[in-house]
């Protein structure tokens, strides 16, 4: 008999990955790395949804994960277009270069 995976451990994994993503966003100044860290955080939230869905044997967790996936795809396409604009205008990927607003 194989035991099923405890929900707490899945949620702990999701928390660890989310915190790692958060550290990435806060520490890194390269905008490509910051976008990657945002992806890690979104993925961690997805893990939490799927783990919770698997715990009660419901489909809702997976449905929510699909919505998160859609949102991540839209976010990353716009984000990378912004990265290209940033590089075109400032010739750098450092977010400190764009810390001041014009106007």
């Amino acid at each position: 008999m194989i035991q099923s995976i405890p929900m707490e451990h899945g949620l702990i994994l999701a928390t660890i990955l989310f915190i790692l993503g958060l550290i990435g966003v806060l520490v890194r100044r390269n905008i490509v790395f910051m976008l990657m860290s945002v992806e890690i955080m979104l993925n961690a939230v997805g893990i939490a949804f799927v783990v919770a869905g698997a715990r009660w044997g419901q489909v809702d967790g997976q449905v929510m994960f699909i919505f998160i996936l859609t949102m991540a795809a839209a976010e990353v396409s716009v984000g990378l277009a912004l990265v290209l604009q940033l590089y075109h205008n400032f010739k750098t990927l450092d977010t400190d270069a764009v810390s001041k607003m014009k106007g």
Binding site: A74, S77, V78, A81, L82, L84, Q85
Partner: peptide, 10 residues
């Protein structure tokens, strides 16, 4: 919206 936004920015 993502498609249009990415096209506009890119």
């Amino acid at each position: 919206a993502g498609l249009v936004g990415a096209y506009h920015l890119g």
